[in-house]
Write a protein that binds this DNA or RNA. Structure first.
Length: 600
RNA sequence: GGGGUGGUAGUUCAACUGGUUAGAGCACCGGCCUGUCACGCCGGAAGUUGCGGGUUCGAGUCCCGUCCGCCCCGCCA
């Protein structure tokens, strides 16, 4: 019905959100979307929106009757070019809530560049719309100011990182997306090969090995902003495809790399938020982080710390405690002072959470105003034990202390998460907005659930030089050169020095259960590259999406990814993944066999 | 794969223990209105209650199955 006008020779003279009192008198064209139309029968007001903000356009029947007549047909989200003159608003007509509120554009001419279907929800911040609706109508969702802001911040962070790396002499080099499956931990996303039916490419989980080959090739400082893929179930902080700032340097030690990471991070915050992070970032050993905070990515702003009680409870008559220690575990406690606001119901909820995290139970002691202990387990503890617990936990009236007794990793996980939950519930923060730190000195290996030796991060991490001799004898004692960058309890990324001697690399692979033949079969290209004269090297990878999320603020990666996938890794915008034609399958030498039922 | 939670108009929600024609705000459509900015006033249209089956005289409501979103565990740095 509505006539659609050509843009013709109209060109935008200013962004809507940029109009200021200093623009009064300018004749210019604004382009944008109709946020809202207020039709007074005579005068018509239109809020015109672009990615910078909103400006008010006025259509008057007496000054521009044709434009006014056209304006009557305007609807939400119509796309306009409006030519007119910027005028100052009368003081009582100004809108102090808008940056552009002192002025308005008096329209001479309006061109409707496109009409628009009715938006499924208002294009505003602070609306509560079901996530599925937002994803299905992502175009509208992305028009909301907060999304525009988030993606712009992400852009500025990206540019900042790229600039910093470039200025520091790192070369940006691209690596293939169609690569070979390597056992880096996660499930690979596979791409079938047409020319070699039955064979598959794997999308990179990270460019780890290929960047090591760049080091061997003599590109002694590399970085890349690179898409990576891991075929695992989604979380609010995990997407199937995600972006890494990947970097690697030769002829350096850990300190030089950490300094570079600090520089990238500090400049990133400065150039996006204008925030100046305090340097140097504190360094925490893995052992200390786990002991005090129960996490390898602690938020040290939370003013709660774990204490160890293993030594005082090893001989306890309470078998839950002494038994855990006897079988090689630990007993630790998380004291919380001034905890009267926590009800018995809260404690029960925390216990059920703890069970969800792997605990068998969650013992607690509460100190009443008269100093007496209210606790389901107090009767099992001797006076001496109670005294020691009270001393080490600094208990006083109003204190509450939670106990964890199990294998050390379980206790750390449970008390660590409990610490975060309690910190949030009781608002025990020290007031700092930003808490960057490095966690260093990770172990090289760990034992998995079945007691099998496995790598902590990945099999290419170099051990500390003095621990190399322990690889075959006492692998669990081998310390790694691995480090993590942690910000506000979020792991922003991790890195390490890598094995540049094939002998050490082979020794580690053998400790992990690879025979030399198998190691050469899977990683021959890496071992050959090392043998070709690889220099000592190491690097890092930032989780760029998480970094963007911290800067933009929000709870989910979906807020900083233009077109994210759902938890089940579906793309609701394009409706992917989708079925494909039988011809395409045939060409790839594939036949689909669904787990149940007939292929649809 | 498992646990939790939700799915009713475009959207956000309501509908007590099963009971008349499934309601309301916003949005939408029409009319009126010359300084609004969450404009206002009058009127209107709008529903496969996610889907399938069952119980019942009767199902949005109860039962079974299934699909989807979100949070979490597993998995994954």
């Amino acid at each position: 019905m509505d006539r659609i006008d050509p843009l013709g020779d109209l060109r935008r003279g200013e962004y809507c959100g940029k109009l200021r009192a200093s623009d009064v008198g300018r004749e210019l064209v604004l382009c944008g979307w109709v946020q809202r139309r207020r039709d007074h029968g005579g005068v018509i007001f239109v809020d015109l929106r672009d990615r910078t903000g909103i400006a008010q356009v006025v259509f008057k029947p007496d000054t521009a009757p044709a434009a006014h007549a056209r304006a009557e047909s305007l609807r939400s989200e119509f796309v306009l070019a409006v030519r007119g003159r910027v005028e100052a608003r009368a003081p009582d007509a100004a809108n102090p809530n808008l940056p552009t509120g002192e002025v308005e554009l008096l329209a001479d001419e309006v061109r409707i560049l496109n009409t628009a279907s009715t938006p499924p929800f208002p294009i505003e911040d602070d609306i509560e719309i079901d996530e599925e609706v937002r994803l299905r109508h992502r175009v509208h969702d992305l028009r909301r100011p907060c999304m525009q802001r988030s993606l712009e911040l992400r852009h500025r962070l990206l540019q900042s990182v790229r600039r910093t790396c470039t200025e520091l002499g790192l070369l940006e080099i691209e690596t293939p997306n169609l690569t070979r499956a390597t056992p880096e931990g996660a499930r690979d996303l596979l791409v079938p090969s047409r020319l070699q039916p039955g064979s598959f490419y794997a999308l990179p989980q990270s460019p780890q090995l290929i960047k090591q080959m760049l080091m061997a090739a003599g590109f002694d400082a590399y970085f890349q902003i690179v898409r990576c893929f891991r075929d695992e179930d989604g979380r609010s902080d995990r997407q199937l495809e995600f972006t890494q700032i990947d970097l690697e340097l030769s002829f350096v030690g850990v300190d030089e790399i950490l300094e570079l990471l600090e520089e990238i991070t500090v400049r990133g915050f400065r150039e996006t938020l204008g925030v100046e992070l305090e340097r140097p970032f504190p360094r925490l050993s893995f052992a200390e982080a786990m002991a005090r905070f129960g996490s390898d990515r602690p938020d040290t702003r939370i003013q709660l710390e774990i204490v160890d009680l293993s030594d005082v409870l090893a001989g306890s008559g309470f078998k839950v405690f002494s038994g855990a220690i006897a079988s090689g575990g630990v007993v630790r406690a998380l004291p919380v002072h001034d905890a009267d606001s926590l009800t018995r119901g809260d404690l029960d909820r925390f216990e059920s959470e703890a069970k969800n995290w792997g605990a068998r139970g969650l013992a607690w002691v509460r100190v009443a105003a008269d100093g007496s202990w209210q606790s389901p387990i107090a009767k099992f503890l001797s006076d001496a034990e109670r005294e020691k617990i009270a001393e080490r936990s600094s208990l006083r009236p109003g204190s509450l202390v939670f106990f964890g007794a199990d294998r050390e990793p379980v206790v750390c996980k449970v008390l660590g998460r409990l610490r975060e939950a309690l910190g949030a519930r009781l608002e025990r923060f020290d007031g700092r907005a930003w808490d960057p730190l490095f966690v260093v000195d990770f172990p090289l290996f760990k034992e998995d659930e079945q007691g099998q030796l496995s790598y902590m991060h990945m099999p290419f991490v170099a051990p500390l030089e003095e621990d190399i001799e322990l690889i075959s004898s006492e692998p669990l004692r081998v310390r790694a050169t691995h480090y993590d960058l942690v910000l506000n309890g979020v792991e922003l990324g991790s890195g390490s020095l890598r094995n540049h001697r094939s002998s050490v690399q082979l020794e580690i692979l053998e400790a992990l259960g690879y025979s030399e033949a198998k190691a050469r079969d899977r990683f021959g290209f890496l071992l050959d590259a090392l043998d070709a004269g690889a220099p000592p090297h190491g690097g890092f990878a930032f989780g760029f999406d998480r970094m963007s999320l911290l800067i933009a603020g929000g709870d989910s990666l979906r807020e900083v990814i233009a077109f994210p996938k759902t938890q089940r890794m579906q793309d609701l915008i394009m409706d992917a993944p989708s079925r494909i034609d039988p011809e395409q399958l045939q060409e790839l030498g594939l036949r689909v066999r669904l787990p149940r039922g007939e292929p649809k």
